[in-house]
Amino acid sequence: MRFYSAETVKIVFVLGAFGVAYAVLDGLNVPALLGAYFMVQVIPTLIAAQLGNRTTK
């Protein structure tokens, strides 16, 4: 239950930060912002998965 609570807080924080950035920054490129966020979240996971699949000989 503690894990899900922390994930909920993280999601609320991220959505709030995106909302503040959208409200405060003029000329913000929203697709670029969301794409960069997605890449930052996904690429480390993919790298870790690839490194975990390596077998030592």
Rank of each mutant, 00 (worst) to 15 (best):
M1F: 07
M1H: 10
M1G: 12
R2I: 03
R2Q: 14
R2C: 03
F3Q: 11
Y4D: 11
Y4S: 09
Y4I: 13
Y4Q: 08
S5G: 14
S5H: 07
S5A: 12
A6S: 08
E7Q: 11
T8Q: 09
V9M: 06
V9N: 06
V9Y: 06
K10R: 11
I11E: 08
I11N: 02
I11R: 05
V12Q: 00
V12Y: 03
F13R: 06
F13C: 00
V14P: 02
V14D: 05
V14R: 01
L15R: 01
G16W: 04
G16P: 04
G16V: 00
G16D: 04
G16E: 00
G19A: 11
V20D: 02
V20I: 12
V20S: 01
V20G: 00
A21Y: 08
A21Q: 09
A21H: 01
A21E: 06
A21N: 03
Y22V: 04
A23N: 09
A23H: 04
A23K: 13
A23P: 00
A23M: 12
V24I: 14
V24P: 02
V24N: 02
V24S: 03
V24M: 12
L25Q: 15
L25C: 12
D26H: 07
D26R: 11
G27D: 10
G27M: 08
L28I: 12
L28Q: 09
L28A: 10
N29V: 08
N29H: 12
N29M: 01
V30F: 11
V30L: 14
P31D: 06
P31Y: 05
A32S: 07
A32F: 02
A32E: 06
A32G: 03
A32Y: 05
L33D: 02
L34S: 05
L34Q: 00
A36R: 02
A36D: 01
A36F: 01
A36P: 00
Y37H: 02
Y37A: 11
Y37S: 09
Y37V: 05
F38K: 05
F38Y: 07
M39P: 00
M39Q: 02
V40G: 07
Q41G: 04
V42N: 09
I43R: 04
I43D: 07
I43A: 10
P44C: 15
P44R: 14
P44K: 13
T45Q: 15
T45R: 14
T45K: 12
L46T: 08
I47V: 14
I47M: 13
I47E: 00
I47A: 10
A48K: 10
A48Y: 08
A48F: 07
A49F: 10
A49P: 03
A49V: 13
Q50T: 09
L51Y: 08
L51C: 01
G52Q: 07
N53L: 14
N53V: 04
N53G: 13
R54C: 02
R54T: 05
R54D: 01
T55E: 15
T56F: 12
K57P: 13
